[in-house]
Amino acid sequence: MTGRDGGADIGPIGAFSPVVILVRPQLAENIGTTARAMANGGLFHLRLVAPRDGWPQERAWYASSGADRILDAAQVFDSVDEAVADLHHVMATCPRPRHIVKTVMTARGAAAELRAISSRGLRAGLLFGPERAGLDNEDMARADILIRYPLNPNFMSLNLAQAVLIMAYEWWMACETTPPRTLMTNETHVATKGELENFLDHLTRDLDACGFLRNTQKRPGMVRNLRHLFQRGEVTEQELRTLHGVVTELSNGRKARQKQD
């Protein structure tokens, strides 16, 4: 192909990661955006079954946003049987059940199954149908498992790349270790209990000095409330330094006003 610079580094390409098989894809742009979606989720093996406009097609590379190597290595077959002949398991996306007696899984369940298959050194394929009508009954008859996405029942329309991206995302997340929640602290750190206690001592001293805690009966509860406030979140060391400065400046301003009076 012309007009390409090799694209982004999308490896490593796992020998046993699932193969994405596009059955009779109609538009080159959809093949390109599918490759982009695959690269997002760590799926790098692409097969095309009887693409309507032939292959290769330059527009696919332009639409792939740098996932060139997936398209460079894409294999073309005349039939689904030929495309799945060397695979051990085949799953097919199925937007509409068609009275077929077969196991149906969600994308998440299928991704876990695919990880288990891959860990055993077996190869699996994911069938995606043509943009307009999806897979027909003959295509789905080649699959061991059907995959159905539990989306809004009143609007389940997906384009080809979106359908592939859902599976790619679930494949990636099946082994992703990123915690579901984290606090981004950049160059500072979450304050230790000692640092927090030092600030609370500073704050309490100045509140005593200005008379805010003059009610001796209410003072313990007020101090506890302040403590609960700062204990509730993960205050950073930088934030505490800022608060130290705020308290000091308020104290200095009060002292200056007292001298003027």
Score class of each variant (00 low, 15 high):
Glu237Ile: 01
Trp55Met: 04
Val84Arg: 04
Gly253Phe: 11
Ser251Met: 15
Glu176Arg: 14
Val247Trp: 02
Leu213His: 03
Phe199His: 07
Asn225Gln: 13
Ala60Pro: 05
Ile70Asp: 00
Trp61Cys: 00
Val223Arg: 00
Asn30Lys: 02
Gly66Pro: 00
Arg227Ile: 00
Phe128Trp: 07
Asn198Lys: 14
Glu176Leu: 12
Arg4Leu: 11
Leu240Thr: 00
Leu22Gln: 01
Met222Glu: 09
Leu71Ala: 11
Phe44Leu: 12
Lys193Ala: 15
Ala28Arg: 06
Ala110Cys: 13
Thr178Asn: 07
Thr177Val: 09
Pro97Cys: 05
Ser17Ile: 05
Arg214Phe: 12
Asn186Phe: 13
Ala116Gln: 12
Asp68Val: 06
Asp206Ser: 10
Thr178Gln: 08
Arg120Asn: 08
Trp172Ala: 10
Gly253Arg: 15
Leu114Ile: 06
Val101Met: 09
Leu127Gln: 05
Ser157Phe: 09
Ser17Gln: 15
Ile70Met: 09
Thr242Pro: 04
Pro179Arg: 01
Asn40Val: 08
Thr242Ser: 13
Gly125Glu: 03
Ala83Phe: 03
Pro25Glu: 06
Leu213Asn: 03
Glu176Trp: 15
Glu187Met: 11
Val19Cys: 12
His88Thr: 08
Pro150Asn: 10
Pro12Arg: 12
Ala73His: 14
Asp78Met: 08
Ile147Asp: 04
Thr248Ala: 07
Val246Arg: 12
His45Pro: 09
Ala133Leu: 11
Asn137Gly: 12
Ala209Ser: 10
Asp9Pro: 05
Gly11Cys: 07
Ala161Glu: 04
Leu135Lys: 01
Pro25Thr: 01
Pro56Ser: 10
Ala39Lys: 13
Leu48Val: 09
Cys210Gly: 06
Leu122Ile: 11
Ala60Glu: 06
Arg98Ala: 08
Ser79Pro: 13
Arg123Ile: 01
Trp171Asn: 03
Arg98Tyr: 14
Phe155Ser: 15
Tyr62Leu: 15
Ser79Lys: 06
Met156Pro: 07
Met140Tyr: 06
Asp5Ala: 10
Asp72Arg: 10
Gln57Gly: 09
